[in-house]
Each structure stands twice: as structure tokens, then as C-alpha cells.
Design a protein around this nucleic acid. Structure first.
Length: 730
DNA sequence: GTTTCTAATATTTTT
DNA sequence: TATTAGAAAC
């Protein structure tokens, strides 16, 4: 079993007692080491029940579980899970000891923001000065530092803005409690709180988790650090794995010092460095090493590989984003014609919005792809609606969920009525659900509103009764049936059909969940799982598609061929990080660049458009400064195959580098003239929103045309030609 | 109470 | 530019 492990890896696996810090460079076989370490512990007679392994993503947890199961007996008795899932599991049992109900809901970012907006309005705070998103990030930051509203208030030292935010934070926590809800940060915060307040509970888990492993330790924030420290304090059998060069979550509170100071916290810690890379070619790895060596704050290390030198990195300067995407598509197509698989390719970018042009081009070129990130499945409106029904059934105190569905589908309960219910609920210190039950006590309500509310309450009660004795799948089906939800969606648009598809997908997920958790398929557990998944968790290795994702999402993955798109100043590094004057920001961007480059096994393409349209304006771009940090011998400029007229003549790398680095440089583009309209009556066309149809009339309307189209599904619509995005049907 | 329009906002990354 | 939230109109 251990034949294929190098001496450092073996040393890491065999170290059992006492603290251990593993610096695991990119592609150094980190997951192998962790899983073999679990197997080794079990082989040496450790009860898997006493092993805890913590990861950041469900995907990593799943992979570790599968790989451990393949080489160790009874590994399913270990706890292998994310920080958040592990903490939810702990809190479901004991959170009542610190004054919460064990049937709490989990609020996602959107729920939190909604709540903050309500509070800002209530406190009469100007949302211009205090944007909800900003407040949410401040509160999150405080929680990651384990600071209560009171702590924050005291620390604000009379600063007017800070005290105001502290007040919002204070109310926010009260409201969460009233809703019987926790946000993401509370999940960690309250587990730490539970351990601090209840030493008996802490000791129980200390004794249980005799061996602790933490993956991606460089990404832990202070709350997570405290959690791990508390658990490991008694027996000190803690093994943390990480790579300070891959710390890319500083903006989310990750504290790189946690890994750099590990030997201060545990002076007896053994430190092992895994520096042999098994993933990339010498050229790729050398380039990554060269880039990251420009960072000042890092522990010294040098990754090396026995792999071949491989091809040079290819750099492509595109005219614009469409050209950039076209180059990517052509290159992939060509490789696939020569025997490569689509799944060998990934297109990585800095921001989710960059996926759009790539996606457009791939559709045209008929390249199968899968996008990870962006709008997550569980954030889609129709899914949130249904989940809100489930949340309201599971936790009647959840006012946010209740407010979301009280008039969805429309049931004649308007804004005024909802406000009245809200106010009554706050005044009487009860949830909106119970307030509705007393709607006859609210003098301002019309009899009609009261009837609507009563009907709604009966509907919910019916669901609750049903849920007590039926499966989750059955409950979802009943909600759909009794509310006529699907029917309310249908408006003939393509989006509506997608929504129905998404709902079916949710039903599939529910069935999967029930099959995976036969002993306890509770609604609470399902909702918690659903709240804590990331899009990347659904990454399928088998599917033969090109993967599109941000470099953040790509961490932990590897691909034979990688394209990094938008390799330009202002995008990567971001304008903000380049201009903030804070060296840490730029260093984090550079670490992200290191992560991006080291995803590639065989080939790497760096592309950027000489001009791009941002927020409606065309802007010229200069190549990213990071390209200067790659040795010149490691890369070469390339040009698109079979294309000469539209691409400008080649320029030397040197000249490209010398190009203006000041960015952004803005240039207004003239307002579009009336575009010619190239369709006539009788043409079959396709439109984004309404799908296929036939043009039945074209009328002149001032500078524009008014086009009447009879759509196959949506029926007849009159639309302005300028606003339409019409294409011929085929 | 519902629909339609306007205006603001966005572009950093997410458990 | 594209999307979305809030306001005005119906």
C-alpha cells in the first residue's frame, strides 16, 4: 500500500501522536497523504469513531470519504465533513444549552441581507451610507473574530458610524434568534460558544475526537482556529495540512498566520514539507514558482518535479472578449479532433461574469461545457420559494421564509397586510406565523385580508400535518399540488420551462437525500444540507464537458489543459487590489495566480483581450503584470489558426509588456445607430425570452420598428426591434 | 393589489 | 450593458 509514497509522505502518515504540520505544495499528493494517514491510524488499532477530518468544501469531504473507504476498514465511522456541517451536527444536539432551539433554520447571504435591510429601515439609517451588503460583511468579519455586538460597540469607541453598525449587529442578532435562525458565521461562532460555556460538552467531543485532521488550514479564520484549538487542546493529536501560498480567502476572514504560527501554538509540532509535485510539467511548475517567489509574506519552500519539461505556456492577445473566447474554442476543438477529451480542458477566470462570452462562443461552436459557480442552484428563485415553504413548515418562527411565500403564488395578501402582520408579531414578541392565527385581533385589516390570511394559515397547517408522517419528496409534491405553483410559473417563456426543470431537479435531490440518509431523513437535515452546499460540490469528473469556473472554485482540482482568461490588469489582479495600496491584497491576487497556474498538468494558455466592454463602456486592457513574473523562456505568443484579417499583426512580447500599464483607460463608444432590421414578415425566428415564433407584422415606429411575432408557446407579442435579440430559427 | 416602469447598481472571490 | 429592486401607475 505504501510503495508509491515518497519518504516525506510516509513520514507524515506514520506520525501519530502529537501535533503535526504538513506544508503540502500544489500537486504534492496531499489528499493521498490524508487518506493514507486515516488508513494507517485504523491499521494501528485506532477506532475510526475517534477520528475527525475537516475540510472546507463538501466536494473535498466526499472525495476523502471515498478514497479512505477504498483503502481502510470501517472508515465510514470517521467524521469526515466540512467545518459547517460538523458544527451543525454538534449544534443540533446541544445548542439548547446556550439558549437556541435545536430546530434552527440556516439563513443564507440573501436571507441575512433581507433582515439587515429591514433593520436599516427601522433604524432610519440611510442605505447609501450603510449599504446592506457592506453591513453584512462587517458583521461577518466581527463574527469571524468571535466578537459580539457588545464587543464591537465597546471597540467602536464613540465612532459614530461604527456604533451605528454595532446597533444594527445587535438588532440583527436579536432578530435571528426570534426567527430561530443562524447565519453561516453563527454556525461556527455558536459552536465555539457552546464549547466555552459547557465544558462537559467540549470534553465529550475532545474525548471522542482523539485524532483531528484539518485540510486547507491556511484558509481557517479565527473562529475556526479557536474551534480546532479547543477540540485539540486535551490530547494534542492534531494534524493540519495546508499551503500558505494557496491562501486565497483572506477577504473572508481567513488568517494566514494560523498556519504560519502553528509551531508557536504547538511548540512540539513536527513540521513536514511535501515539495515534490506530481501534477505539472517542469515548465508550468517553474513558472508558478517564479510568480509566487515575488511574495514577501511566505514560508520558504521550493516545489520540484520529475515530470517532463513539456510545452511552453501559450499566450494569446485577443482583440476583444469574443475573439478571446473564439481562440479558446478553436484551440479546444482542434485538440479534440486530435483525440483529446473535452473534460481535459478547463477555462478559469477571475470573476464569474467573465464566463458569459466563453459560454456564448461554446454554444456556437457546439462545445459541451459546464459552468460552476455564479448563481447557485439553491439560490434560484423557484428553488428558494419551495425551500421557503419547507423552512416555514419545519420552523414556524422563520419569518423570512414565511414572508417570501406568503403571497407566492399570488393569494391576495398585499404589502399593507404583510406589514400589519409583521408589526403585530414584533409588538407581541411572537412569530408572524402565530400572528396570522390571531389576525382577527388586528383592527386595521379588512375582512377580505383576514380571510386570505386564514386560508394561508390553513394551507401551512395542512402541510405541517402532512410533513409529520410523510417523506420530504411527498411534502414537496404536496406543496406543488396544493399551491398550484407550477401553473403560476407558466407564462410561455423559456425561463418558465427551465424553472420547472429546476424543480424536478430539486425533487431528485430530495430522493437522493432520502436514499443517502435512510435512518434520519428529516426535513431539518435536508434543509441544512441544502443550505451548505456549494456549486463546486456537484463537480462531476466523468462528464465529458469543458469546465468553466473561477480560480477560487478550481482550488483542489486539476486539468490536463488549462486556459486562464482575462489575464489583464484591472481584472487580474483586480483594479481594487492593484490600487488599494495594501500589499497584502496584491499578494493574495498573486497566490490566486499561483493556484490558477498549478491547476494545469500539461498545457497552459494565458489569454486576454486588448479591449473589453465593462459596464457598457469599452476599455483598453494591458496584459497582467503577473506575466512579467514568468521566465521569458517559459512562454511564447501564439496567434489564431486560420485567422489573419481580423487579428492585428503580431507584436513582440517585449512590446506587449512595455504597453501602457496604467489601467483602466476609458473610451466612450458612440451610441449605436439604428441597426438595419434583416427580417421580413413570414420569417421563422428565435428570441431569447420567448423561444421560436413567426413574424406576422413589421411596423415602423419612429427610429425603430415594432415587430409582431406569433410565438409557438407564448403567443402573439409586439416588441421593439432595437430591444430584440432575434436570430433566424436555425 | 398588481403590473409596468424607472433607477440604481454592478465587477472579486463564497462556506 | 444587464439585471434587479423599488416606485409609480393602473
Amino acid at each position: 500500500m505504501k510503495n508509491n509514497l515518497n519518504s516525506m509522505q510516509q513520514a507524515a502518515i506514520k506520525h501519530i501522536k502529537g501535533p503535526l504540520l504538513i506544508f503540502a505544495g500544489a500537486g504534492s499528493g496531499k489528499t493521498r497523504v490524508l487518506t493514507h494517514r486515516i488508513a494507517h491510524l485504523i491499521e494501528k488499532g485506532v477506532d475510526p469513531y475517534n477520528i475527525l477530518a475537516i475540510t472546507f468544501t463538501n466536494k473535498a469531504a466526499k472525495e476523502m470519504k471515498e478514497r479512505a473507504a477504498a483503502i481502510a476498514d470501517n472508515s465510514d465511522r470517521c467524521w469526515i465533513s466540512t467545518f459547517h456541517s460538523a458544527c451543525v451536527r454538534i449544534l443540533r444536539i446541544d445548542i439548547d444549552k446556550i439558549g437556541y432551539n435545536t430546530r434552527f433554520s440556516i439563513f443564507d447571504a440573501a436571507d441575512s441581507e433581507r433582515l439587515i435591510k429591514d433593520i436599516l429601515e427601522e433604524l432610519n439609517l440611510d442605505t447609501k451610507l450603510y449599504p446592506a451588503k457592506y453591513i453584512a460583511s462587517v458583521i461577518s468579519g466581527q463574527k469571524n473574530e468571535l466578537k459580539t455586538p457588545d464587543d464591537f460597540y465597546k471597540a467602536s469607541a464613540g465612532d459614530f458610524n461604527k456604533s451605528n453598525i454595532a446597533e444594527v449587529y445587535n438588532l440583527y442578532q436579536q432578530r435571528l434568534k426570534l426567527n430561530n435562525a443562524l447565519d453561516f458565521d453563527d454556525i461556527i461562532f455558536n459552536t465555539v460558544e457552546l464549547f466555552k460555556q459547557c465544558p462537559d460538552v467540549l470534553e465529550r467531543y475532545q474525548n471522542r475526537f482523539y485524532y483531528i485532521m484539518v485540510d486547507e488550514y491556511q484558509d481557517t479564520n479565527n473562529a475556526q482556529y479557536m474551534l480546532v484549538s479547543l477540540l485539540a487542546k486535551k490530547y494534542q493529536n492534531i494534524c493540519v495540512v495546508g499551503d500558505d501560498d494557496q491562501s486565497i480567502y483572506g477577504w473572508r476572514g481567513a488568517n494566514i498566520q494560523n498556519i504560519l504560527n502553528f509551531n508557536k501554538d504547538f511548540p512540539k509540532a513536527k513540521v513536514i514539507k511535501l515539495e515534490q509535485n506530481y501534477r505539472s510539467t517542469k515548465t508550468i511548475l517553474g513558472s508558478a514558482n517564479s510568480v509566487i517567489s515575488n511574495n514577501v509574506t511566505r514560508s520558504e519552500k521550493s516545489l520540484w518535479t520529475e515530470n517532463i519539461s513539456g510545452e511552453k505556456i501559450k499566450v494569446y492577445k485577443a482583440e476583444n472578449e469574443r475573439d478571446e473566447a473564439a481562440f479558446t474554442a478553436v484551440t479546444i476543438k482542434l485538440a479534440v479532433q486530435n483525440g483529446a477529451k473535452y473534460s481535459d480542458f478547463a477555462v478559469l477566470y477571475r470573476t464569474n461574469s467573465q464566463s458569459r462570452p466563453v459560454e456564448d462562443r461554446f454554444v456556437i461552436s457546439d462545445i459541451p461545457y459546464r459552468i460552476y459557480g455564479g448563481i447557485r442552484f439553491y439560490e434560484r428563485a423557484e428553488i428558494k420559494d419551495l425551500l421557503s415553504y419547507l423552512k416555514a413548515i419545519d420552523n414556524p418562527s422563520d419569518n423570512i421564509a414565511l414572508t417570501r411565500i406568503i403571497n407566492v403564488p399570488r393569494r391576495n395578501i398585499g404589502k399593507i397586510t404583510i406589514q400589519e402582520v409583521q408589526q403585530y408579531a414584533y409588538e407581541n414578541g411572537i412569530s408572524m406565523y402565530y400572528a396570522i392565527k390571531e389576525s382577527d385581533q388586528m383592527p386595521k385589516l379588512t375582512p377580505r385580508a383576514t380571510v386570505s390570511l386564514e386560508k394561508f394559515a390553513n394551507l401551512l397547517d395542512g402541510f405541517s400535518d402532512f410533513a409529520a408522517t410523510n417523506t420530504i419528496t411527498a411534502v414537496i409534491k404536496k406543496v406543488l399540488a396544493d399551491t398550484d405553483y407550477i401553473k403560476s410559473l407558466q407564462d410561455g417563456t423559456v425561463e418558465a420551462a427551465n424553472k420547472v426543470e429546476n424543480i424536478n431537479e430539486l425533487l431528485t435531490k430530495a430522493v437522493e437525500f432520502e436514499n443517502a440518509n435512510p435512518e434520519e431523513p428529516t426535513l431539518s437535515a435536508f434543509l441544512a444540507e441544502v443550505s451548505l452546499v456549494a456549486d463546486i460540490d456537484n463537480y462531476e469528473e466523468q462528464a465529458d464537458t469543458v469546465s468553466l469556473m473561477t480560480m477560487h472554485s478550481a482550488k483542489g482540482l486539476e486539468f490536463a489543459n488549462v486556459f486562464i482568461a482575462g489575464f489583464e490588469e484591472g481584472i487580474f489582479p483586480t483594479y481594487r487590489s492593484a490600487t488599494s495600496g495594501n500589499l497584502d491584497d496584491l499578494e493574495e491576487e498573486r497566490r490566486l495566480c499561483y493556484v490558477g497556474i498549478t491547476r494545469a498538468k500539461q498545457t497552459l494558455h494565458l489569454t486576454w483581450p486588448a479591449s473589453r466592454i465593462r459596464q457598457g463602456r469599452e476599455m483598453n486592457s494591458a496584459v497582467s503584470r503577473f506575466i512579467k513574473e514568468i521566465p521569458q523562456d517559459n512562454y511564447e505568443y501564439v496567434y489564431m489558426q486560420g485567422r489573419s484579417t481580423t487579428t492585428k499583426p503580431p507584436i513582440s512580447p517585449r512590446k506587449a509588456i512595455a504597453e501602457k500599464q496604467v489601467n483602466p483607460y476609458r473610451k466612450e463608444i458612440p451610441a449605436p445607430k439604428n441597426k438595419p432590421f434583416n427580417f421580413s414578415v413570414g420569417d421563422r425566428v428565435r428570441q431569447m425570452r420567448y423561444g421560436a415564433g413567426e413574424i406576422i407584422a413589421i411596423d415602423s415606429a419612429g427610429a425603430d420598428y415594432e415587430v409582431t411575432i406569433k410565438f409557438d408557446i407564448a403567443g402573439e407579442k409586439k416588441l421593439m426591434a432595437n430591444l430584440l435579440k432575434l436570430v433566424p430559427e436555425n
